[in-house]
Simulated assay, not measured.
Amino acid sequence: MANSAVPDRPVIDVAKGTVSPHLTRLLVRAGMAAGLDRSRLAGLPGLAVLDDEGIRIPTGTILRVWEMLSRLPWGARGGDRVMELWQPGALGVWDYLFPVSGTLEEGFRAAARHFTAIADPSDELRVTRDGGALTVSWRGPYRDLPEYPLIAEFVPHMLLMVASSAAGRRLAPLRVGLPDLASIASGRSAELYNTERVIDADHPSVTFAEADIAIPLPRADPALAAILDRHARLSIEAARPVLGWLDRFHTVLESAVADGPPGLDQVARRLGMSPRTLQRRLNKEGTSWREELERLRRRRVDRLLRETSLSVDSIATRVGFTDSRALRRAIHRWYGHGPPVIRGSGPS
């Protein structure tokens, strides 16, 4: 069984907390066509310069747009309205990785390798072989968000659209996996995914037969594929992040936590403001110092417990708790059980 994972670390560091503007443009256009009030988009970081190909916008911005779309009266349809506006190249260099590849399998592996060209580095596209079948699955840290079912429904559809365009025909997958089957209206799976076999799965996925993934693509171009592979990486490294105030706060908070238990005064000083002003700015964003610190610590603790063998004492130090007892109390408050249960469940 083979697996294709995320890009190299330096690219992830450069792009952390951001996405490309390409998919956001499609989301905004689809939302406007469905009646989204343009005034609700005002002030979202990056949207004013969304046509600039050389930027990366905060991940929070695209999630906010997804949230707005999830509340629109789509009727019997959802995220597929977004792909109605798609044309090859609308997702930037990532789009072009497919048609120039030798086969669809090669295309998906290139797309997984350079998924950060359109997504946040915390999002992962996995390509897995199981016998003659190839499964492409998406994993992102958004499961607790109300808009997650819409995103999860959209991703397999997007993958099918770009792959079908590269193949020159509409592909019929062996199956599609969704973590929320209730999000698919009755009888809609055939229209959306060209298959009636939509199954319950931990992560959104689409599985193709050997006959589809191994056939040479009609526009394969090995020399151009090599050029685009390099360009995909360089475009991420050269992109300019457009960050909002809350993004700067998150960056400073993460840095402060890495140095030990952070204090409100310390973070406010790094941001060049008084503690009272910092609290006021957070309140205007609909959050608080305590909520932000708790959210960051919980995310880090969850990852370290699932993905490392560090002791609870070491994790407490890394995440800024005074000692392991304080960390154990927090874990019980968050999950209702102790660290061994989380560690035993494996990567999320």
Rank of each mutant, 00 (worst) to 15 (best):
D80M: 10
D80E: 15
R81T: 09
V82D: 00
V82Y: 01
L85Y: 09
G89W: 10
A90V: 12
A90E: 14
A90T: 10
L91G: 12
D95G: 06
L97G: 01
L97V: 05
L97K: 02
P99D: 09
V100M: 02
V100D: 00
S101R: 05
G102F: 03
T103G: 06
T103R: 04
L104K: 02
L104Y: 04
E105P: 02
G107K: 04
A110Y: 00
A110R: 02
A112S: 11
A112V: 04
R113T: 10
F115I: 10
T116M: 08
A117N: 10
I118T: 11
I118K: 06
D123C: 15
E124K: 08
R126Y: 06
T128E: 06
R129D: 15
D130P: 05
G131L: 11
A133T: 15
V136I: 14
S137N: 01
S137H: 00
L145W: 06
E147P: 03
E147L: 14
Y148P: 07
P149V: 07
L150Y: 03
L150M: 15
L150C: 05
A152Y: 02
A152W: 00
E153G: 04
V155N: 02
P156S: 05
H157Y: 03
H157W: 01
L160R: 00
V162C: 08
V162K: 01
S165I: 04
A166L: 10
G168T: 14
G168E: 11
G168D: 13
G168K: 12
G168N: 13
R169K: 15
A172D: 04
L174P: 03
R175D: 06
V176S: 01
G177Q: 01
G177R: 01
G177W: 00
G177Y: 00
L178A: 07
L178Q: 04
L178R: 00
L178I: 08
D180H: 15
D180R: 12
D180I: 11
A182Q: 14
